[in-house]
């Protein structure tokens, strides 16, 4: 072949390498085994995961004046409203903690979970145009959403830490589990990320065919907040109804988060149950997601 531009590829595949000779590196079949999750494929595309996170971060703040400051304003106002309505007006219990700090300790992790869930539940429908043109492990997209949402969480977490420091300095009676903060904080974030991801990809798989779930998720997440001890402590629920709230896998991480920073007993057993439920949900989610990703272009 004539070649005007000289060989640009320093690593052309060698024609007689044994690997190419006798084994197929890729098989496209109508059906694959459900346990074939192709996670190695996801690992091969890890650079793309990072680039998506970067893209999301850079593109969100382009052409906004306040930039990441928006993440401060939203939880600050929400907490203020909660403090006025639930604490001052409705006189709901905050387990003896300062109301402002109590609500921030609830909404900060809850917001992270809720954002992860809502954003990942849109994966297929939102990315249909790019998914329709090129293959890469689709799981990269929800994973990148969960990762880039950590930035938003980090900013709100800083806000929370600021308030915590203020209340500690003015001598409020708060007893954080100092020794556990370093271990439990990342563990809880991971747990909530996994939960948001698992539930989100299940919903996103269902929305490809039945769009109804898009509407369900919008107010479902809001309703779910009231079934999670975000604006009330678990202790305010009558003993015999408590199991209902504990069935919600988000209850334990929120309670634990609050206990680590504000003091109180850490609900180890419910955390264990929540972790098991999360693992199951995530596994089911990945299996469904993998099944749907192969042919969702035909139905979306």
């Amino acid at each position: 072949m004539p070649s005007s531009l000289q060989s640009l590829d320093p690593r052309p595949p060698s024609p007689d390498s044994p690997a190419l000779e006798d084994h197929w590196s890729l098989t496209i079949k109508p059906h694959t085994k459900w346990w074939d999750l192709r996670l190695a494929d996801v690992w091969n595309y890890r650079d793309l995961l990072w680039l998506f996170v970067r893209r999301d971060f850079v593109s969100v703040y382009k052409q906004t004046v306040l930039g990441p400051l928006w993440f401060f304003i939203q939880p600050l106002l929400t907490t203020l409203v909660f403090t006025i309505i639930f604490s001052s007006v409705a006189k709901m219990s905050t387990d003896g903690h300062p109301a402002m700090l109590f609500y921030l300790a609830g909404t900060t992790p809850w917001n992270y979970f809720a954002t992860c869930l809502t954003k990942t539940s849109n994966t297929f429908v939102q990315n249909a145009s790019i998914f329709g043109k090129v293959y890469f492990p689709r799981l990269i997209v929800p994973l990148s959403i969960v990762s880039s949402t950590i930035i938003q969480f980090g900013i709100q977490f800083l806000l929370f830490l600021g308030f915590l420091a203020y209340f500690l300095i003015i001598g409020t009676d708060i007893n954080p589990h100092w020794g556990l903060i370093v271990i439990l904080t990342p563990a809880l974030i991971l747990l909530m990320a996994a939960l948001g991801l698992g539930a989100g990809i299940i919903v996103s798989s269902l929305t490809t065919k039945y769009r109804d779930f898009t509407f369900l998720i919008a107010f479902g997440v809001q309703l779910m907040m009231y079934a999670t001890p975000v604006i009330f402590p678990m202790s305010s629920i009558p003993e015999k109804w408590r199991w209902i709230i504990q069935l919600n896998p988000m209850s334990a991480p929120i309670e634990a988060f609050r206990a680590v920073f504000l003091g109180g007993p850490i609900p180890w057993s419910s955390l264990g149950i929540s972790t098991a439920m999360t693992a199951a949900l995530l596994l089911v989610g990945v299996i469904i997601f993998n099944k749907v990703e192969k042919s969702f272009m035909d139905t979306v």
């Binding site: 190419l20 084994h23 590196s25 098989t27 496209i28 079949k29 293959y135 272009m297």
Partner: peptide
């Protein structure tokens, strides 16, 4: 981007 309904494709 999508899967075949029947049949198989193998690639190296």
């Amino acid at each position: 981007v999508t899967t075949p309904t029947t049949g198989e494709i193998k690639a190296k």
